[in-house]
């Protein structure tokens, strides 16, 4: 998930649960699953949720393009203005929303995020999609599903199910933003939000 952490030195309590090659395999598998489920790539638009959903979306789109031999439209969808906790946190900067030129009307929109947790981000993303057009279908792809859902939301494509306790944090690193690809779980006694 997009992490507030700026630190790369993992504490003794943290452990890497997924490495770079796991991530690569998971994304390739997700790309194939998307193609299989939608019987090809026609009408598919991949939208990553900032921050780390965006490079994941791009990688999935690239993997799909490799198979299909055509370019897959991919972009980003910022959900900040649709969050339900805006009153609870200091205002944050908006991330870019970049919808591919064809728009999303009648398309199959694949939302991509790094970690699926409470489900509230996806709820917000569905609202945002709704304001941008009327897709034929919306599907959800996540690299990690760590459980603890607070809303009736499930992922269509999951890189890895990762049972966690609420006292743990899950941190996805991607080479586009971080030193390397990986997923790290660490224990923390300090928690914020609903975690």
């Amino acid at each position: 998930m997009s992490s507030a952490s700026r630190s790369h030195d993992h504490t003794a309590a943290s452990r890497e649960v997924i490495d770079a090659s796991d991530i690569a395999r998971a994304l390739t598998r997700i790309a194939h699953e998307i193609l299989e489920r939608n019987k090809g790539s026609a009408n598919v638009v991949i939208l990553g949720i900032p921050t780390r959903g965006v490079p994941l979306a791009a990688r999935i789109a690239a993997a799909m393009a490799n198979v299909e031999g055509v370019e897959i439209p991919a972009g980003s969808l910022d959900i900040t203005m649709y969050r339900d906790d805006l009153r609870l946190h200091p205002a944050r900067a908006l991330e870019p929303t970049d919808i591919p030129a064809g728009g999303i009307d009648d398309a199959v929109v694949i939302l991509v995020d790094d970690v699926l947790f409470s489900g509230r981000t996806i709820r917000a993303a569905l609202d945002a999609v709704n304001d941008l057009g009327r897709p034929a279908a919306v599907q959800l792809a996540v690299l990690v599903d760590r459980g603890h859902r607070q809303l009736p939301i499930r992922a269509d494509f999951v890189g890895k199910n990762l049972p966690t306790s609420l006292s743990e944090t899950v941190r996805v690193t991607l080479s586009e933003y971080d030193d390397n690809d990986g997923v790290v779980i660490s224990n923390t006694n300090v928690s914020r939000g609903s975690s």
Binding site: S5, R87, S186, S195
Partner: peptide
Amino acid sequence: LSGADLSRTDPTASDSTKPEVVS
């Protein structure tokens, strides 16, 4: 308006959309 305004916080609405990660 979206800043943390604790004087007006509704405690029942304390779930975060995107849980923050603290490392």
